[in-house]
Nucleic acid binder design. Sequence first.
RNA 1: CGGGGUAUGGCGCAGUCUGGUAGCGCGCCAGCUUUGGGUGCUGGAUGUCGGGAGUUCAAAUCUCUCUACCCCGACCA
Length: 551
Amino acid sequence: MRTSRFLLATLREDPADAEVISQRLMLRAGLISRLATGIYSWLPLGLRVLRKAERVVREEMDRAGAQELLMPAVQPAELWQESARWEKYGPELLRFKDRHHREFCFGPTHEEVITDIVRQKVTSYRQLPACFYQIQTKFRDEIRPRFGVMRAREFLMKDAYSFHRDDDSLDETYTAMYAAYEAIFGRLGLTFRAVAADTGSIGGASSHEFHVLAESGEDAIAYSEGGYAANVELTQAPPPPERPPATASRESVHTPGQHTIAEVSAFLGVPAERIVKTLVLRGADGGLVALLLRGDHELNAVKALRLPQLAQPLQFATPAEVQAALGCDFGSVGPVDFPGPVIADRDAAALADFVCGANAHGYHLTGVNFARDLPEPAVADIRNVVAGEPAPDGSGPLAIARGIEVGHVFKLGTVYSEKLACTVLDEHGREAVMTMGCYGIGVSRVVAAAIEQNHDARGIVWPQALAPFEVALVPINLHKSPAVAEATDKLYAELTAAGVDVLLDDRPERPGVMFADMDLIGIPHRLVIGDRGLKEGQVEYKARRADTAEN
RNA sequence: CGGGGUAUGGCGCAGUCUGGUAGCGCGCCAGCUUUGGGUGCUGGAUGUCGGGAGUUCAAAUCUCUCUACCCCGACCA
């Protein structure tokens, strides 16, 4: 490919409104173009990268025995009503009506459609196990799309679904998919980690997430040297110490202007771990519920969601509601005389002589004790583990890393096959419900994640497998030096004939411009052809990652 | 949805407070120059100042309203 015949839409300046490095570089390098919030076009350069990611995914899925098919993006409501997800999925499901007022949705995932196909076409246990996959555009009407294609509303996903007559067979395919995922992310040159995960809204027995490790990741994962690895969302906190006896008496202290734990801690000279943080959420019955955490701990929303007392999605009370119920703002809220259920994290429940808000503007209580000053609270593990705490399986202290979820494998069981009556006849001629697994990879997200992990001050540094072009040819004075033109044409022809993806920069630009662009778009290898080197029979080679060039 | 912010040529911004009919840098086009890390000079094109309504002799600027986008909180590949 020649740059004179290829849309290089690079920007000299950083685009405003781009927060994360991958988004900034994807826009600046001209990989994508924003059409609406969370909706992007893939420009020719970006599409080449996306296709390379697809290719690796496709090859490994095929190798693992999955069969590719392609399902529609638009799906009828009836199918979703059959699985009960038409009601359950919520506003993230983009719904619309056709001209006959029939209801449809734009598929956010394809369990229903594949199950419908399999229940029609697969009739005998002899046809099992079977695994199908597609690489296709999904739409999820995210509340807050962000970070470019990282959390887009429309995105490219590889989704696979496997069907089995029993759990052993499912385990086998699950293991094969897990291995295929390791192969895929390995081939793509990503540093990743597979972790045990919450089964979330899709439901099912067990699941693992594949995370690309990056500072900008939206997930926190906990792991130990001994091999523990799980999303922080579901990592159990270690058992709390025993509660010491109460020694202090309860006092009300004026704490004007002290709202945050840090402020109160500094003001009273009490460490954060002896202060109780009170979060006010909406209860399942519409009232308010107090959640207590140690000042140095954070609420774990996934764990809290399991509390039956809370409203289902988690809703924090508004300042106005708190003001109406307690007569103070968030900074002075506390559990003593709280008008509703009080649920304490296990570590908060283990405190004695603690500090908490007084439910009076500008006041805190010190020397507070459960049982004596307020009823014993309900107790649950509702906090995030912190680095250094022991892993739940005793495999050593935990470290916490941030990750971008690029893949997810699920053992679904019979959640969908039962609802949609997806059965085969077994060897005894009896109907048997199939067991299912599903396996997703965010293909467009992989591209962004790869940039998060592979970039420098000059731009993207593509891993070989994802690079839009493998080699950049940069001729100096191409249009004035016949010798350069001849050598360049020859090299271009030979590399192309050898099957190498070459980008020849034949624009009448200055060298600096060409170097800057080739660096920005991250071509892994660069050859510079100039009169200077040709006199010695040499061209210059430089790897994108290298600091210096060689002849 | 709630909270905060922005909207001026392809991109990045100034001008808005204090109304007087739009400017800078980059990019783009032409010419010359230069040519191993975003060359220099000259000339040129591109704006219904997000939409609508209003106030005014006069609105990018003031008022109302709508829309889009960005950032912060509850979801997921």
